[in-house]
Amino acid sequence: MLPFLKIMVKNLLAGPSTEAFPFAPAHTPARFRGKANHDKNKCILCGICRHVCAAGAIQMRVVEDGSGVEYVLWHNSCVFCGLCAHYCPTKALTMTDDWHLAHRGEDRFAVREDSFVRYGQCSTCGARIQPRPAVIVEALGTRYPDRFMMCPSCKRESLAKRSVPAKPDMETSETSDE
């Protein structure tokens, strides 16, 4: 008898099924791919993000004096596929869960990720090399700290000059990981 009463009471107790969003914060899943974030302190300018970007949203331009690279990621071109973050070897690019990107039309050229990454310098000859930020030096450059800060030619030179102890039983093992 009167089966709708049961449903009515159930719905009354359950509360509204509508999300309160514009008037209260919305729930965002933990792995939601929102706007990309570029950390210039981890970037080594390998350019793989620009290479894999499906929409061509990433631009890297060498500045006029050649001291570094201007890195721009346009959120209005990005299709939020997350390939850049997936392929970034140093995790400098990450996808945040921030989706509050709606903006006025006149602000369209301001909606971008803008950073300047400075080139590194060879510790011996001063030539331009890839950036050597502190995070990368700690992660990769601890085994051979001197050679890690050199340009390829200085590195080759230092390897050739180094004195190898003449031991008959050590023929190939010394240079195995270079």
Partner: peptide
């Protein structure tokens, strides 16, 4: 006048 970026944007956006 207003731009909602996303591919596609979520309903809340």
């Amino acid at each position: 006048d207003v731009i909602v970026p996303g591919c596609p944007p979520r309903p809340q956006a």
